[in-house]
Design a protein around this nucleic acid. Structure first.
Length: 878
RNA sequence: GGGCGCAUAGCUCAGCGGAAGAGCACCUGCCUUACAAGCAGGGGGUCGCAGGUUCGAACCCUGCUGCGCCCA
């Protein structure tokens, strides 16, 4: 360091210990109010609502990715001068939460019925206060810049009011109705489930073919995987054009084990190709059979209760469905009615997504949303371009979903949730009550016992959280939200429902301008992470060991639009290493007086090295901007990674060392300061902690916090790219690299200074960089006793440079020959390829002129290289 | 059964018409005063298979094979 270097006090420790420093930095940001949005601000708004995590849940890698991306988006916009609202909260997760509390009760030997509805709900609130929302603390650890003052919960009073308002409006518009239909029933949770709460898997079962009919009369064979349901059969159906059965249509057959006779009906929906072409019809326990039953006015007896225990009178009554199945088959076999059995028979079986119990289709009276008009409007919002889905390929999936959506069962037979605001009167009256209306009272009036699906309240999230149905200042300022970020696997859960409700409730205004869908997290070998597989990585563990920054950077670097990402510890370690690199580079720069307190000198006063790095910096700023506008997180972060490490650290810092020792020291400090400043700003949305720590040190009293600093391109103006400087530095890099390669091949130790004479036609334009070349390639000046024992020629843009080296001894001729022969082979291959192209008439005639020119230059360069290398090979002692 | 996507270096993935790339792993040499969580150098791929379009194909088209996802 020179005498006049400003003595910048840096309190930076030698190493960055994220786990020690990150939490305090976060608390400072929250205390300073940086994340609190102001609806009265005149800045343009940028809004993100956090897809509400489940109150029972804790942070997993999928959340970590989701949050990292939302945080990066909002932090950048904040730096760009937007009034940013990132709104956090949770949903009440009806089934999951009720299950957790019921399990707790079960440990005390109680059921919810022992407590009664009111006490039970009270108990759930107590549970929530004590154990719920662990994820909120974990979000702080991650660094989420959310507005905690606006934290919401779907069961809060305001949001409950929104739910009731929405229900009432839909009801009055005829978009909510009550009907008896086949629904997915979970016999363990004792509630209805919507289609998306059912997971299908290919399970092993049995396919049993049963002969229906009398011994001597008409007989048909039907096949089933659920033999016990035959107790509820009320018909056999065949296709009307199926000649095999034409004579039987309209007749009756005996239903075994029951003594009942059931009709044979003709229905177009029967597939004559499948099995025998005749199907049993159980209207109360199968959705297709239900439709057939409706068309033919069949009776629809239920044969199971809510636990899936057989209620049909007879020997099977009281048996569980899985107990009854083999029992029924055995009884049929005894009667000689089993025609065929296929076991195992693999077929798709629905499971409750909350408890994995096999779902039972069940006929029951439920509340429904008529989705057709809502879904059409939700689809139109994307079709019209009001909402853009990223990546665009996934819009197709969205349309497939919203254009083919079935009506949505919204009632749940639970106690934890928003109770349906409908009262039934003594004379069959049905009254739906809005939030400010008095429910009917008096003798015989009862309220519907069911609650609404959690997704009903989550669907209102983008506006219920802002005070809807009141027209609040928040709604005016922050709705519609700017972007919704979530995994493509729950496109239907969040996006479709929020779109339907948002467009409906807000007079056609879409809930979000953009939807960004990221991929799923997988383990190192590409398998889905799950607790049951045991391959899940705990984000908290990574944050403790590598830092929240390193984990965030890892996730962002893997976030290619629409693609899943495989994670392994090595990736996190790599990101940690990057942070360390940044730390050390900044420490070096600052200890050498890097400063942002002096304006950048005009280009004319800067060296080519300075102009090169500043030009690159400017290019990186605009590239990063372009990429981030397009949600290209992986590309943007990889660009920053390589620029910081490969260009700034590996080259500019090394060049700066030379400049700091010379007359350009002051300017170099300014360039170093500005380069570092810009890189820290660009990286801040992804790695907020370490950049904050470094930036506040770099700026000293001048900078309050990087959180509220301006994004590059605003206050930090950079010089234009300088092609001459770029070419010069490219030459310096190539020259240094070639000399290093020679040294390595010759077995010269990296630290060992080697006397060298530099010359040749190409060297004079690089004369100003001689000190740098000597420093980076570890060369010393040729002394009086200099005697070149080896030399090499390097072809550069500026011409050929001759490097004569005094290795003070014999050189390894074999190694040198090998090196030259390798270069020769490369040049010969190049010559062959380019000549082949240029010898092709079609190529010359049809390829664009600039391409042909480029190939010509390459051919000429290759030819010259061959000549040069051959000469050197010939000159080598044998 | 219907629809969609993916096959590129040992692994995980970029590239998507004009010279095969990155990270990690691997090999060699280095504690060169910012950094061994590092530095310097290096090896490694007929871009799944077969056809076609084109002056030119990892990239576009067709078929096949193998994986994965969604819906029924």
């Amino acid at each position: 360091m020179t005498e006049n270097a400003p003595q910048q006090h840096t309190d930076l420790p030698n190493a960055w210990n994220p786990a020690d420093e990150e939490p305090a930095l976060y608390q400072r940001w929250v205390d300073a109010g940086y994340f609190t949005a102001d609806a009265a601000s005149d800045k343009p708004p940028f809004t993100v609502v956090l897809p509400p995590p489940n109150v029972t849940g804790s942070l997993h890698m999928g959340h970590a990715l989701d949050h990292t991306l939302m945080d990066a988006l909002t932090r950048r916009r904040r730096m760009q001068g937007y009034e940013v609202l990132w709104l956090p909260g949770m949903d009440h997760a009806g089934i999951a939460t009720q299950n957790v509390v019921e399990r707790e009760l079960a440990n005390e030997g109680l059921s919810r019925h022992d407590l009664g509805r009111e006490c039970f709900v009270e108990r759930v609130w107590e549970w929530k206060a004590e154990y719920g929302g662990r994820i909120l603390g974990q979000m702080r650890r991650l660094g989420d810049g959310v507005d905690w003052s606006r934290e919401r919960f779907t069961m809060d009073e305001g949001l409950s009011r929104a739910v009731q308002t929405m229900f009432k409006r839909l009801y009055d518009d005829g978009l909510i109705y009550r009907a008896e239909r086949i629904i997915n029933w979970c016999p363990r949770c004792h509630t209805a489930l919507s289609d998306i709460e059912v997971d299908h898997s290919d399970d092993e079962g049995e396919l049993v073919s049963i002969r229906y009919g009398d011994g001597d009369g008409a007989a048909v064979v039907v096949a089933t995987t659920r033999a016990e349901t035959m107790l509820g059969d009320t018909a056999v159906a065949v296709h009307p054009d199926d000649e095999r059965y034409a004579h039987l249509v309209g007749t009756e057959v005996e239903l075994p084990l029951t003594g009942r006779r059931i009709p044979i009906v003709a229905d177009r929906h029967v597939d004559p190709e499948f099995g025998t072409g005749a199907v049993k019809v159980t209207p109360a326990h199968d959705p297709n059979d239900f439709e057939i039953g409706r068309r033919h006015n069949l009776p629809m007896p239920s044969i199971m209760d809510e636990r899936a225990v057989i209620t049909a009178p007879g020997p099977f009554e009281g048996m569980d469905r899985f107990e009854a199945r083999p029992a029924v088959v055995a009884a049929l076999r005894e009667q000689g009615r089993i025609v065929a059995e296929k076991r195992p028979y693999v077929h798709a079986v629905g499971h409750c997504s909350r408890c994995d119990t096999v779902v039972e289709p069940r006929l029951s009276l439920q509340w429904w949303v008529k989705v057709e008009p809502l879904a059409r409007a939700a689809g139109d919002a994307v079709r019209d371009g009001r909402t853009t889905i990223h990546p665009p390929e996934l819009a197709k999936r969205y349309f497939e979903w919203v254009d083919n959506m079935h009506d949505w069962t919204i009632s749940r037979q639970l106690w934890w949730g928003h109770r349906i605001p409908v009262w039934y009167g003594p004379n069959g009256e049905v009254v739906c009550v809005g939030p400010d209306e008095e429910p009917p009272s008096g003798e015989g009036w009862t309220r519907d016992p069911d609650v609404l699906d959690t997704w009903f309240s989550s669907g209102l999230w983008p506006f219920s959280t802002m005070g809807w149905p009141d027209e609040t200042a928040d709604l005016a300022k922050f709705y519609p939200t700017s972007v919704l970020v979530t995994g493509y696997d729950i496109l239907f859960f969040w996006v479709a429902r929020m779109m339907m409700f948002g467009v409906y409730a807000r007079g056609g205004v879409q809930p979000f301008d953009h939807v960004f869908l990221h991929g799923l997290i997988r383990d190192a070998s590409g398998k889905k992470m799950s607790k049951s597989r045991g391959n899940a990585i705990d984000p908290l563990d990574w944050m403790d060991r590598f830092g929240a920054d390193a984990m965030r950077f890892t996730l962002a670097r893997g976030a290619n639009p629409g693609a899943d990402m495989a994670l392994a510890e090595e990736w996190a370690a790599g990101s940690r290493n990057f942070c360390t690199k940044l730390w050390n580079a900044a420490r070096f720069a600052m200890s050498n007086g890097a400063t942002v307190h002096r304006p950048l000198p005009p280009a004319a006063e800067l060296t080519e090295s300075d102009r090169w790095i500043l030009g690159r910096l400017g290019a990186v700023v605009s590239e990063v901007d372009e990429l981030l506008e397009d949600f290209q997180f992986a590309k943007a972060t990889n660009l920053l990674y390589h620029f910081t490490w490969d260009e700034l650290c590996d080259w500019y810092l090394e060049l700066a060392k030379v400049q700091l020792a010379g007359e350009h020291a002051e300017n170099t400090r300014a360039v170093l300061g500005h380069a570092l400043d810009t890189v820290l700003r660009l990286l801040h949305p992804f790695i907020p902690f370490i950049t904050e720590r470094l930036w506040t040190t770099l700026t000293g009293s001048g900078g309050e916090s990087l959180v509220v600093a301006q994004w590059p391109g605003g206050v930090v103006t950079l010089p234009e790219a300088d092609p001459v400087a770029d070419g010069r530095i490219a030459d310096v890099q190539k020259l240094v690299t070639e000399i290093r390669r020679f040294r390595s091949d010759q077995g010269l130790k990296p630290g060992q200074r080697v006397a060298t004479r530099l010359g040749g036609a190409g060297f004079s334009p690089l004369a100003g960089h001689e000190d740098a070349v000597r420093a980076l390639a570890r060369l010393s000046e040729p002394g009086d006793a200099f005697s070149a024992t080896a030399s090499l020629e390097v072809a550069l843009g500026s011409g050929t440079v001759t490097v004569e080296v005094d290795t003070s001894g014999t050189i390894d001729v074999a190694a040198e020959r090998k090196r030259l022969q390798k270069d020769l082979a490369v040049a010969e291959k190049e010559l062959k390829q380019t000549e082949a192209k240029l010898g092709n008439e079609g190529f010359l005639a049809k390829a664009p002129a600039d391409v042909v020119d480029k190939i010509r230059v390459r051919r000429d360069t290759a030819a010259a290289d061959i000549e040069r290398i051959t000469a050197r090979l010939d000159a080598l002692p044998s």
